[in-house]
């Protein structure tokens, strides 16, 4: 502390000016990042007729729940919410399990298949068959127009496997050795010894997988656009945004009705908030984990 005080005294005017500039700059960055969200939030809670007058910044002028009541009375959106929640929960549970299981086997130096398996998986990070061959594959597997198309192709993320593996590599091998001497088989070692130690890295990849599922819309657009029962939240928001911004009509009678009673602007803002809020609530709690996870992934690649 005393040395720091000493340094503080020595700081030149230029140094101090830089500090002030830096803090002001950071505050500006904060405002530029947060303002759009707060603006959308304010509009979503503002009376939709009043919103058209303009001038709403970050505080609603005429507070109302009406916009939210309207969108939650809209069946397609509720179906979308259900599917999004379902795929996020299911997809994350499966994604974390698969990545950690494979990561453990590939971390075992003595595993005889590791020599050919490791490159088999690693290669897929550098190339992809491309959109159309993958689309044709989904057709041949009869996955188009199903809920499974959200889960099966994304069953495993090779990127996450390598993040978990580099974490396991950092754990002391002696733990596994002693479990083995106690008569534990490889499954028990994975389940009882490795998994509990991996909690931080599993939290990281759970966040990545969950955000990926929550934010996905293109698979709905590509594979399930004829299946309203498998629609997702992001896809519904995308449709509402596109329909008003490009002027193409929104054929869904449900939506027509919704748009007639409340202005499309307010609808869009309210759906945006519904789609965004869950993520914003979860992520600050996981921040210390994902920063570590990102760094691990980068070191490995």
């Amino acid at each position: 502390m005393s040395t720091q005080k000493g340094l503080l005294k020595q700081r030149s005017i230029g140094d101090r000016a830089f500090d002030i500039f830096n803090i002001l700059f950071m505050i500006t960055v904060g405002i530029v990042t947060l303002y759009p969200f707060l603006n959308v939030l304010a509009i979503s809670f503002n009376d939709s007729v009043d919103t058209v007058r303009g001038g709403i910044t970050i505080i609603p002028r005429e507070f109302t729940w009406e916009n939210y009541k309207t969108i939650f009375a809209y069946d397609t959106l509720l179906t979308g919410l259900r599917n999004t929640v379902l795929r996020t929960v299911l997809g994350t549970a499966i994604g974390v399990m698969t990545a950690s299981m494979l990561a453990y086997t590939l971390s075992r130096v003595d595993f005889q298949a590791r020599k050919w398996m490791s490159p088999l998986f690693a290669m897929t990070m550098y190339f992809s068959g491309g959109m159309i061959p993958i689309y044709m594959l989904m057709r041949q597997l009869s996955l188009i127009g199903t809920f499974e198309v959200y889960i099966l192709p994304a069953l495993l993320s090779v990127w996450n496997v390598f993040i978990v593996r580099s974490y396991i590599d950092g754990l002391p091998y002696a733990l596994q050795e002693s479990a083995k001497l106690d008569g534990a088989n490889d499954w028990v070692i994975f389940w009882r010894v490795i998994l509990p130690l991996c909690t931080p890295v599993l939290a990281t990849i759970a966040l990545f997988v969950a955000v990926g599922h929550w934010n996905a819309w293109f698979d709905t657009y590509l594979y399930n656009n004829q299946k309203p029962e498998f629609t997702t939240l992001q896809y519904e928001l995308m449709k509402v945004l596109q329909s008003t911004s490009t002027g193409t009509n929104y054929r869904d009678p449900n939506a027509q009705q919704a748009i007639a009673s409340v202005s499309p602007e307010s609808i869009r803002m309210a759906i945006t908030i519904v789609v965004t809020v869950p993520i914003l609530f979860i992520y600050p709690f996981l921040q210390k984990y994902f920063v570590k996870g990102m760094t691990l992934g980068a070191v490995k690649s």
Binding site: T33, N215, W217, V275, T276, Q287
Partner: peptide, 13 residues
């Protein structure tokens, strides 16, 4: 914390 936030929001939003 503020600066990481938009990364988690979808491109649709």
């Amino acid at each position: 914390t503020i600066a990481y936030l938009p990364h988690f929001v979808s491109w649709v939003v």
